[in-house]
């Protein structure tokens, strides 16, 4: 098993992809940038297990922190409001330093 690809604090972006199947990366965050706030650990890949395939490699799961104003351009609340979401490593890519 390899360790986590992203350390806590790393800027990441949710992949902009729309595959079919049992996907746990919320649609509203595709293409949005945030930062790793917590490394949870390794779990089976739900996209495989949903089809009865339990033997594949495990995936690192993170909690990612997003500033609301980065998720919703017209967010009505103050700039410090955030979302924290669990995302599997196969949905994350390194983002620029501009991310929160």
């Amino acid at each position: 098993m390899s360790g986590p690809r992203f350390p806590v604090g790393a800027p990441v972006r949710i992949r902009r992809a729309w595959p079919p199947g049992h996907v746990r990366a919320p649609w509203y965050l595709r293409g949005r940038s945030g930062a790793i706030c917590h490394i949870i650990g390794e779990f089976g890949n739900p996209e495989e297990m949903a089809y009865g395939r339990y033997d594949g490699p495990k995936l690192m799961l993170y909690r990612v922190r997003f500033r609301q104003v980065d998720v919703w351009p017209d967010y009505a609340g103050p700039p410090q409001d955030t979302l924290q979401v669990e995302v599997y490593e196969n949905w994350l890519e390194a983002a620029g330093e501009e991310a929160a």
Binding site: R24, F43, G77, Q80, D81, L83, E86
Partner: peptide, 12 residues
């Protein structure tokens, strides 16, 4: 105050 919404999408 920071309003922090947790979306429980996966294992927790």
């Amino acid at each position: 105050t920071e309003v922090r919404v947790h979306d429980s999408t996966a294992e927790l």
